[in-house]
Write a protein that binds this DNA or RNA. Structure first.
Length: 299
DNA sequence: CATTTACTGCTT
DNA sequence: AAGCAGTAA
């Protein structure tokens, strides 16, 4: 029993990384709607990174800079360096190395891309468990952590009417406290291990910002797919714990294409073959059925 | 020309 | 080693 809970895995993803690199290089870009674009001649260049201020205006990746300017007249455009007529990403690779150097102090990393890394925190969590006197985790050590599925919906609870005016930080904090108080004490408790993993990731992210100036988001769960999914739930500059108990409700309304590697043709073939839309509906099929259709790459 | 670039797994 | 399909940012 408890299959799938034996590891603590995190995914750290830099927020609009190329934009942050350009903002550090040119501080006047900080806290502004801005993008990074490559090549200038065709429609102002193609956008490959977008600040969150610019996203609020509807600016997206893959947009031409000239088109983005129509949506956001104050948009500032940083240019990717060019060498030999080609886009040269050296600056971002060097920034990436700096980030990875800091994160490597905390755990062994698996580089997923120039701005993303997976890490297995199981051993580091076990270390902390040993050197822990009580079985409680201080919520003060989880100041940017969200727990997916918490606070529990009032409908599942008794009575109280939904409070639609609650502030985001208020909700985050309430959910965190509610979840922490529901985490039982045992040293084999998977939820306690996730909490300790989140504390480690809080420290890692703070160190990355202190030493490089770059901010990131993170997901903490029991495997890479769930960690990646969790990371995307609260961005930017936040981290999300995804306990296994919160997965069924999350999957109920989660399009299959939101899962890593199912965003393309494979996901579309699943939707078509099985006539399902959301991840939750996949539980209606046995692993043998899934393998028959899609090979042994289903877990 | 008008996404582009990078990475992974598989095949040749 | 090199090319191709698939995937993602």
């Amino acid at each position: 029993m408890d299959y799938g809970k034996e590891r603590v895995v995190a995914l750290v993803d830099m927020d609009c990384f190329y934009v942050q690199v350009e903002q550090r290089l040119n501080p006047s870009l900080k806290n502004t709607p801005c993008v990074v674009a490559q090549y200038k001649t065709w429609k102002g260049g193609g956008i490959i990174a977008v600040s969150y201020e610019a996203r609020a205006h509807g600016v997206t990746r893959n947009m031409w800079a000239d088109d983005a300017k129509k949506l956001c007249p104050d948009l500032q455009v940083a240019r990717v360096r060019e060498s030999h007529g080609k886009a040269d990403l050296t600056h971002y690779r060097e920034a990436s190395v700096q980030v990875f150097e800091v994160m490597s102090r905390f755990a062994v990393l698996e580089r997923a891309s120039i701005d993303e890394a997976y890490m297995d925190l199981t051993a580091a969590v076990q270390q902390r468990l040993k050197s822990m006197t009580d079985q409680q985790v201080d919520p003060q050590l989880m100041k940017t952590s969200h727990v997916q599925g918490y606070p529990l919906s009032p409908l599942d609870q008794e009575g109280a009417a939904q409070d639609t005016t609650t502030d985001k930080e208020e909700r985050r904090s309430r959910g965190l406290l509610q979840w922490l108080s529901s985490v039982s004490g045992g040293s084999g408790c998977a939820e306690l291990q996730l909490a300790l993993g989140a504390v480690i990731v809080e420290e890692m992210r703070a160190a990355v910002e202190q030493h490089t100036g770059y901010r990131c988001s993170a997901g903490i769960s029991h495997n890479k797919v769930l960690a990646k999914l969790a990371c995307g739930l609260n961005k930017p500059n936040r981290q999300t714990l995804l306990p296994l108990g919160s997965v069924p409700e999350l999957f109920n309304s989660l399009p299959i294409g939101k899962i890593r590697n199912l965003g393309g043709k494979l996901g579309a073939s699943i939707t078509e073959t099985l006539e399902v839309e959301n991840m939750g509906e996949l539980t209606r099929f046995s692993q043998a059925q899934l393998e028959q259709h899609f090979g042994d790459k289903t877990g």
